[in-house]
Design a protein around this nucleic acid. Structure first.
Lengths: 180, 180
DNA sequence: TAGCATAGTTTATTATATTGAACAATGGAA
DNA sequence: TTCCATTGTTCAATATAATAAACTATGCTA
């Protein structure tokens, strides 16, 4: 995890010295030095104070991924395909284990249906209908969306996608974090 | 922040008892009890071990936002419009302050160009080309993407979008966290 | 060069987290 | 009911983090 390096980087980005941050967060400067060298592991409470001094949330702090990522561009035939019954998902990128977005082009044949999907991650998801019609159920809300319409909700609500029409439906969707 | 309640909730969701989690994470069960009551603030190192026992990352743990969100469905004419010169962005949802995704339908007229965009958040962004052609520059890589092609990179790299052709270009894009 | 300000580091002391074991409290099964 | 298993809680002992002050190093100005 390397909390030390991350803290140091965040501090440097703000242009703070250890002492400046120590003052802001009401912490001793020695403590900051030890943390940055990973000689001690700060309590969550202390780290929170430090990050407040840097105007950063714990969530942001721990989500800052810095490993350089591989492929950046994907040709249409390089998208990773997933199928669930007759429904096809074309995913941007392969292994999304250490990534935050799952970007999909979804293809729903006429009368296809995901059924109720269980709550997976505690994330968010949204999308825009490219063509055709799709009936989206989220919690106790049901909506029929057409080309150009969009949705955006929290993934922990039970949800369902159903193509009620006689034409194909295509959706551009995204969720964070990735589901599969 | 209430680390205690969050930990308890995450543990319950997995169906673990305090002792079961203690065993998984090689921590004493008493410690878990005290943490869940917010009587002590665990070190980051310990919390990490606990979350590993629950198959959860620190980032996920601190990002679990539970405030219920408002609107879930958006008709095509309800998308929020942003314009930068001749480039139009249609955004899903209005105020994204407390949200994690910014979902856009982007419209690039012939020969439009964003210029070099500065690094904004330390996030990620990606998208798929719906129609037309777009030249995408990320760091020192340049690619011409056509309908169906996609991109996915880290937002802290300088990047630029340019429509070199004589036809309109439309893109579905997403970034986390939101930029504007 | 000397003098001073600021940077990060180290260390003995103090405060806090963590342990391990004992302590309820609850819920079956016999 | 009694017995046993399992739950979460508490507390003295121990390990670790956090402090405050001393220390080193660097750079700037006179």
């Amino acid at each position: 995890m390397d909390v030390g390096s991350r803290l140091k980087e965040a501090r440097k980005k703000r242009g703070f010295s250890q002492r400046k941050l120590a003052q802001e967060a009401d912490v001793s400067n020695g403590t900051i030095s030890l943390i940055e060298q990973n000689k001690i592991s700060p309590s969550v409470a202390l780290l929170k104070r430090l990050l407040e001094g840097l105007s950063m949330s714990l969530g942001e702090f721990f989500n800052e991924d810095k490993y350089p990522k591989e492929k950046q561009f994907f040709h249409a035939d390089e998208l990773t395909e997933h199928t669930f019954g007759s429904i096809r998902f074309l995913q941007v990128g392969g292994d999304l284990h250490d990534r935050r977005l799952q970007i999909l082009r979804e293809h729903y044949p006429p009368h296809s249906d995901t059924g109720e999907l269980m709550l997976v991650h505690n994330g968010e998801e949204g999308g825009i209908v490219l063509r055709g019609e799709i009936e989206v159920t989220v919690g106790d809300e049901i909506q029929l969306l057409r080309a150009g319409d969009a949705y955006y909700f929290e993934s922990n609500k039970p949800h369902r996608f159903r193509n009620p029409g006689d034409d194909d439906c295509e959706i551009f969707s995204v969720c964070t974090p990735p589901n599969f």
